[in-house]
């Protein structure tokens, strides 16, 4: 019940936030939060660290961007198709990678994502180094003008809430129960008759599709799809967001994305612009050394100690 109240408060905050803060910034924040939630589904609930999630973010972005520029589809359809494309790519990558564990899984996903990166670098439709610029936002359902930043923000908020709900539901579903069992004791799950790789594969596909959804909406927000989103830096950044916020907690990735994106935004503008990566690296080291369970994880511990 307490958690439900917290959610209500957070949603209300998100609804009124654009009247106090710049909506495009908030939309960016939500896109990354969704991306981190998708990633956390794999790392936090399956226990597999994917180092190739940028491929799905980027694929969603490019497909949606291309459709908006060339097909005349309405934005919601372009976003859905971008998501489906990322999910399909995830299904293929997942089939190839879930048989591996630990560092090998990370390496396979990284290698596949690099393959995708170079494909997009060379493919004519992406605009290569220049990226895909001037993507129109279009009109949602044919009548809501997304060039209005406020409208855009609320669309992103709706998408985010859907994605967050889906992750939450997946974790708390019969399927999620099996995922937990696999994470807890894989040989035992096998001995109970579960084909564990199939479960990991489905989780990976969902995670990839949601990362694609984040990328698709992000492209609409910035009217741009670029190589930054498929670069391995992006795969690393989402690991950072998730760890800072709290891996395996439902709100952790949201908080982590908030912290990292806000920092990047403010630091890169100021005098410390050149040191962004050093500062982030420093925070990462501190988190790994001192706050293993991330911001949300640590808060939960404090909460449990005092009220639990």
């Amino acid at each position: 019940m307490k958690l439900n109240k917290l959610y209500v408060v957070l949603v209300l905050l998100a609804v009124v936030a654009p009247f106090f803060l710049y909506p495009v910034f908030l939309a960016k924040l939500l896109c990354f939060a969704l991306f981190a939630c998708a990633f956390n589904l794999m790392l936090g609930y399956v226990g597999l660290l994917s180092f190739g999630h940028a491929a799905f973010l980027g694929t969603g972005g490019y497909i949606t961007g291309w459709l908006m520029m060339n097909s005349g589809l309405t934005p919601e359809l372009a976003v859905i198709l971008g998501t489906v494309a990322a999910g399909a790519l995830g299904a293929v990558f997942g089939k190839l990678s879930v048989k591996r564990e630990g560092i090998y899984f990370a390496m396979v996903t990284l290698a596949l994502a690099q393959l995708v990166f170079f494909l997009y670098l060379q493919a004519p439709f992406t605009g290569g180094e220049d990226g895909m610029q001037g993507v129109s936002r279009g009109e949602l359902f044919g009548f809501i003008d997304l060039t209005d930043n406020l409208n855009m923000y609320y669309f992103v908020l709706a998408v985010f809430l859907f994605g967050f709900w889906l992750v939450h539901r997946t974790i708390h579903s019969p399927f999620g129960q099996i995922l937990k069992a696999i994470r807890e004791n894989e040989p035992r799950a096998v001995s109970l008759g579960y084909e564990v790789n199939n479960y990991k594969w489905v989780a990976f596909t969902i995670s990839a599709a949601l990362a694609g959804l984040a990328g698709s909406t992000k492209t609409l927000v910035f009217q741009l799809a670029s190589l930054t989103d498929v670069h391995w830096h992006m795969s690393g950044e989402v690991v950072l967001m998730t760890l800072v916020g709290g891996v395996g907690t439902i709100l952790g990735p949201v908080v982590g994305a908030g912290v990292i994106v806000t920092m990047q935004n403010y630091l890169s503008g100021g005098e410390l612009g050149n040191y962004v990566h050093i500062i982030m690296g420093f925070i990462f080291v501190i988190c790994v050394l001192a706050f293993r369970s991330g911001i949300v994880g640590e808060l939960q511990k404090v909460w449990k100690r005092n009220f639990g």
Binding site: K180, A181, P187
Partner: peptide
């Protein structure tokens, strides 16, 4: 061989769940 961070009841349910045929239903509530 147990699932340490599930409750005792949940441990048994994981086994019972298999024959129910909804173990892939990620859209349903637990």
């Amino acid at each position: 061989a147990v699932f340490p961070h599930l409750s005792v009841l949940e441990n048994v349910r994981v086994a019972l769940q298999r024959k129910e045929g909804h173990s892939f239903h990620f859209w349903r509530s637990q």
